[in-house]
Design a protein around this nucleic acid. Structure first.
Lengths: 236, 236
DNA sequence: AAGTGGTCTAGACCACGCG
DNA sequence: GCGTGGTCTAGACCACTTT
């Protein structure tokens, strides 16, 4: 049996207060000694809790002044792999232009396919994602039909393909390779994203590897970055 | 004046022994109590040193067993331009347009600065990187002069700023946040990269966090992606 | 049982920021 | 001068792994 660690109690308590605005952004937390008194503990334990919050990006520490609550990052989370938790206040909508259906592999895919993939039909679907009712992202997605049946988009858990894989099929995203380009928008992209042909668009090619070796997901993504940038973070 | 912190001495000592193979990969470090004895200190201090090495990916800890030296540092998923980081025959060249010098913080930087950074002067340097004698990348780089002296670019290990930090200063990159945009090239970018004004260019804003909490590196990078894409991979 | 790392106590002194 | 966070000491007990 693992006894509840005191530093985790403190850490969770403070995190909750930050998330609910009881410690507002930009203000200072109570001093370490005050927290010690509140939880009847010593500074070692309090500092352990604060160090974790520091690592997680909730606070910054200022020597001689205190621990200040930081603003949480908003994110599109496009380039992120499992493990990244995005915090966004934006209104998001997804429109499926093409339901998952069996199709041929497309030359549009930037990554070389394995021989097993080439010799099997693929499942293709296409979506446009909106932020505040404006189209931002056009996605083309492919995966090998050998590895997974065509899913129906209305069965997507929370509208997310990855969540569906994880919860309904126990398949996890294990990693990704990406290629990024700034390109002039072609006619199709411009139409779907409400841009002019030739406007700069961010083109992201991705191969996602999953916990099933035979299942890769290929995406060709076009992103309008004039309103919001695409964000991406990695931390040890 | 800052006295040399004992946990940093221990941390650097062990890191050097790992880097030089004196603590071989896969073996266990001396136990915490042994290190305590060796440095005449207490476990709190030793554990602080080991926790840093853990965060930096040099070791893993196994409860009840010991601290084991890891094979290689975990992947960071940093964005790299195809060709610059690969072992290929591409001819790479870096031209320093502006040697590291003390300057003011620039509004160009996309990320909010910490209060400590705002109140200190910064070091700025600018480079253009070439592939096969064609300019591909224009880089603006900043870091707080409080955290690190201005380095001379001719002292860079293999022409790499990060390698220099690791080998000469034992500072490791701990993570990054990035913002990506496809933009029309402005006059300055177009001139430096041999493009036309208005051509799409990939604009990458990065904040690198290092193992020294007071040292962040800020880069604003403009990348011509018509010849080669920018690549990025991440694996668990 | 012995050794390891994980958590915690109860102090101490130092460096920094501010009035 | 005082309160803040940063470092450090000298212990203690616990949970986990191995012998």
């Amino acid at each position: 049996m693992i006894k509840r660690r005191k530093y985790l109690q403190i850490q969770d308590y403070i995190k909750k207060r930050i998330q609910t605005g009881k410690y507002p952004v930009g203000t200072y937390l109570p001093s370490e000694n005050e927290i010690c008194a509140q939880f009847s503990t010593t500074r070692t334990t309090v500092r352990k809790a604060l160090d974790e919050l520091l690592k997680e990006g909730f606070i910054e520490k200022e020597h001689g002044k205190g621990s200040r609550v930081l603003e949480r990052r908003k994110s599109l989370g496009l380039l992120t792999v499992k493990g990244f938790s995005e915090v966004t206040d934006y209104k998001v909508k997804t429109v499926v232009l093409q339901e998952p259906k069996i199709a041929d592999w497309d030359d549009l895919i930037s990554f070389p396919l394995t021989s097993a993939e080439k010799n099997a039909p693929c499942v293709y679907f296409q979506r446009v994602r909106y932020l505040e009712d404006r189209p931002i992202v056009l996605e083309h997605n492919w995966y090998s039909q050998n590895a997974l049946e065509p899913l129906r988009s209305k069965d997507f858990v929370d509208g997310s393909f990855f969540k569906t894989l994880s919860q309904d099929y126990l398949i996890e995203i294990m990693g990704s390779e990406q290629e990024l380009r700034a390109e002039p928008a072609n006619k199709e992209v411009a139409k779907n994203l409400g841009m002019k042909t030739g406007d700069p668009v961010l083109h992201i090619s991705v191969r996602f590897k999953t916990s099933r070796p035979e299942l890769n997901l290929y995406s060709e993504i076009y992103c309008k970055t004039t309103m919001v940038p695409v964000r991406n973070s990695y931390f040890l």
